[in-house]
Computed example of a mutant assay.
Amino acid sequence: MAEVELSAGTIEYEDTGGDGPVVVLLHGVAMDGTLWRHVVAELRADFRCVVPTLPLGGHRRPMRPDADLSVLGVARLVAEFLDRLELRDVTLVMSDWGGAQALVADGRAGRVGRLVITSCEAFDNFPPGLPGRNLYASAKLPGGIRVAFALLRFPPMRRLPMTWGWMTRRPVPREVMNAWFRPLWTSRAIRRDLRRYVLGVPARDELLGWAERLADFTGPALVVWAAEDRVMPPEHGRRLAALLPRGAYVEIADSYTLIPEDQPRRLAAHLRTFLADARA
């Protein structure tokens, strides 16, 4: 893992290198860049894949105590990451986390040439669905984050609808999920960072305003949604695609929210087709 020092703290990232088009892949809450491991394996021969671990609970390096870890703050951190690595004309791909809306609304998408949004938070679905509401309720209680993730040491707890059962149709490998949760099990500072993010969701009007500002993004865009998603409504995906001036929409069957886990090859194939068409 490489690392870069940003205003909020140290961000770790994977960079496959090479001279191919740059694809930056972003994950969601309580996971890390390994969410994309299968997709990266499919793309790395032809693309430079850059995969940061965002400060959303699966990060190993705590952020500074004064860091802005709201949704908008993390979106600005992504823009700063692109600046520091001097990445240009990138294809920005995200799953679960809906920060693309904030990034565009804040006028910080100058280094983004193409946008790919897979099943994620959108409109006022922040925190998303039953798992998001459960995490938000835990974050409001003293020690709630610690208790919530301590319960996830037990694999059966991970398949409940209020935890991770609706995030993937098939269980995430135990060793992968253990690595995602370990920082939250072992570090009070990491739990602090996650709590600040979860409680940093703005008002509904601001969230809806962010979504509307996607109309300002004029580059090629692809919205990929899990057809059977129970956390991120497919209707949200169709609405996002309609807002984007050059947006296209596809659905992937036999998948819940985390398409990179459930259907990585199908997702990678859609990415390849999109990138080939966008650069033609």
Rank of each mutant, 00 (worst) to 15 (best):
Arg191Gln: 14
Asp32Asn: 15
Phe81Ser: 15
Arg213Leu: 03
Pro233Arg: 05
Thr10Met: 04
Gly110His: 07
Pro220Arg: 02
Ala248Pro: 00
Thr257Phe: 15
Ala215Ile: 00
Pro65Thr: 04
His236Val: 01
Cys49Ala: 11
Val93Glu: 04
Phe81Lys: 01
Val176Asn: 03
Val223His: 09
Gly18Ala: 10
Pro62His: 08
Val198Ala: 03
Arg44Leu: 01
Val74Tyr: 10
Arg76Phe: 07
Thr163Asp: 13
Arg133Leu: 11
Ala105Phe: 06
Phe47Leu: 07
Asp83Thr: 02
Pro233Asp: 10
Gly209Asn: 11
Ala253Trp: 04
Met31Phe: 04
Val112Lys: 06
Glu14Val: 12
Gly98Arg: 02
Ser119His: 07
Leu194Trp: 12
Thr273Ile: 07
Pro245Gln: 11
Cys120Trp: 07
Val50Thr: 05
Leu222Glu: 12
Arg279Met: 00
Gly107Met: 04
Ala242Met: 08
Val198Asp: 09
Gly144Trp: 06
Ala215Asp: 05
Val176Cys: 04
Arg44His: 06
Phe154Val: 15
Thr53Gln: 09
Pro233Lys: 11
Phe181Asn: 07
Met31His: 11
Arg108Ile: 00
Tyr197Ile: 02
Glu12Tyr: 08
Glu12Thr: 10
Ala75Arg: 09
Ile145Leu: 11
Gly99Asp: 10
Leu56Pro: 09
Pro245Cys: 13
Asn125Ala: 12
Leu54Glu: 02
Tyr136Pro: 06
Leu271Thr: 03
Phe217Glu: 06
Glu261Trp: 08
Leu77Gln: 13
Arg146Ala: 15
Asp32Tyr: 12
Gln263Leu: 08
Glu80Gly: 02
Leu151Met: 09
Asp32Glu: 00
Leu199Val: 01
Arg60Trp: 14
Arg61Gln: 14
Leu115Thr: 06
Pro55Thr: 03
Ala137Met: 00
Phe123Cys: 01
Asp46Arg: 11
Val39Tyr: 09
Gln263Asp: 00
Trp166Leu: 14
Gly20Ala: 01
Pro264Thr: 03
Tyr256Leu: 09
Val223Gln: 09
